[in-house]
Design a protein around this nucleic acid. Sequence first.
DNA 1: ATGGTCGAAAGTCGA
Length: 262
Amino acid sequence: MALRIATLNVNGVRVRAPLLERLVASRPIDILCLQETKCANAEFPANLFRRLGFPHLVVHGQRMHHGVAIASRTPIEEVGREDWQANGEARHLAVRLPSGVVLHNVYVPAGGDVPDPMLNPKFGQKLDFLARMTDWSARQTEPAILVGDLNIAPLPEDVWDHEALLEVVSHTPVEVDALETLRASHGWVDLARRFVPAPQRLYTWWSYRARDWAASDRGRRLDHVWCSPALAATALGVETLREARGWERPSDHVPVIATFDL
DNA sequence: ATGGTCGAAAGTCGA
């Protein structure tokens, strides 16, 4: 059975109805993992997802900022929501899929502009988040899939200019090291790079501030699909929907769709 | 060094 899981930082779920409609019409998708929904649970557009054929919803929202949600065509069961910062921010949801596999949807803090925890507390919070998530990850024994906006582009080929971005939050060596420590703590497999290996360039995010995002192509790969080593053989492919960045009223992130034989 | 653009919200902040 092919199971297709899409992850997308929507940057506001309520303004993305047309984009989500176009997405599910463009590709077969069974489960949508969303980040930055930016609304309280009561404001979540459940009717939109029902109309799109995703009536099974697990939402963990908050007013204004952050917020994650999982929408599925078939029943899912919430099995957890971690708060690695212990500050109440809505950045993680876990559900059990019909196959029994657990799916984690994560939104790692962006970390502010200055890559120095002394000058910028948000950067320290990002590193703390990753350290606590690593402790959690090391304890995970069940085979799982982990998707989301991890807000770090780990490889030189995950950014438009490795040298230029070494001191830009999302690609600093300390963040790249923290992400690699997290990945190694469970042996997570970076599935997008299994199918599109370096040195091919691969991006999932382009700033809104570029005059012409496609022409300048100053992208970063911030959105990821990982799985446990035991599930790696079930992964059939990963598609990054670059074209969605050019759709009407886009998010600054594009969907990443992974297909599993599950 | 700065500003460019979004979304949510409210006359600003986080990204």
